[in-house]
Design a protein around this nucleic acid. Structure first.
Lengths: 159, 159
DNA sequence: ACATCATAAGACCTCAATGTCCTTTTGTCA
DNA sequence: TGACAAAAGGACATTGAGGTCTTATGATGT
């Protein structure tokens, strides 16, 4: 019952990117450093997100990654599924034919309901919600005398 | 975001055992066969459940496994945690010290809430609920002309 | 054209989850 | 007490998640 590291990393990178206007460029290197994420693994996650057009990738010397659309248009379910594939909760749920007990199994029914509630939750929230949450956290931290983020480079590159 | 096979198998075995009075004995062999579970893996899961006193194991020629207490006294959270350890959802949640972003991370807050809702769900339901669900399924199946369970041995051994 | 530096792509490694197999220990019964 | 059949326990194989590394490819400035 764990969120995979891939989704975790993807969300952290997306939160960093959401703090700047859509279209702002971010280098893999900076995202990894500022998010405390393994660079060479993050690149695979971002590739999945690029396939789903949640982010755009730009090659070349002034390349980088940018958000593909506004944070409010990116549901957490879309992030989960573009990285991990369908949210299954129990392996037999999305493919009833794979289990000979399908349709006569209490566990299947119970976890089907749990899955629906999780999916509803992920679908009801967008990256914007996480961004708002982050803004609230940052504000309360800044009011006290907390240290600055590790790298000023988190801000997007100016073309 | 998946329930592990171990928990899946454990629940299936517990549902089989719950259909007989507490104390009834079940051989590993029968549980595995009737539940369609890998015998040699199931034994490890049952050992975890035995450590948590959710089941009792009995050695010797007329040994087997029995429920440790009434299905209504076994919450699904207990089953999950005795097999898999704490339900973490996100690896850093139960141990804030493990993550340098703890307390300043929107993902942590969001998944903390998701975790609470999952835990509440697992805590609010017991094996008895799954049993009731199973009874309902069995009833509706028997009213139609569905095949019998694979093995009559699913019924407990009469000591 | 070419050097530079970004992502793209894929090989490769490690480890935990999953699953199998075999030997040992233990309780029952003749 | 000895044979039998059950769980206990540990070694080992397989698979996928998580992570690293190297080479290819493309955009930019000179």
């Amino acid at each position: 019952m764990q969120v995979t590291r891939a989704v975790d990393y993807g969300l952290r990178a997306l939160i960093l990117m959401s703090r700047q206007p859509v279209g702002a460029r971010f280098f893999l290197q900076d995202l990894a450093q500022d998010g405390g994420l393994p660079r060479n693994y993050l690149v695979k996650v971002l590739k999945s997100l690029a396939c789903a057009e949640i982010v755009r990738s730009h090659r070349g010397i002034k390349g980088g990654f940018s958000l593909g659309r506004a944070p409010r248009e990116i549901s957490l379910r879309q992030v989960f599924e573009s990285i991990d594939g369908p949210v299954t909760v129990m392996h037999c749920l999305p493919d009833p034919g794979s289990c000979s007990y399908s349709g006569k199994c209490a566990a299947e029914v119970f976890f089907g309901q749990l899955r629906q509630s999780i999916l509803a939750n992920l679908e009801a929230h967008t990256l914007q919600d996480l961004l708002d949450l982050q803004a609230k956290i940052d504000c309360s931290k800044n009011c006290a005398c907390h240290p600055e983020p590790a790298h000023a480079e988190t801000t997007a590159r100016k073309g």
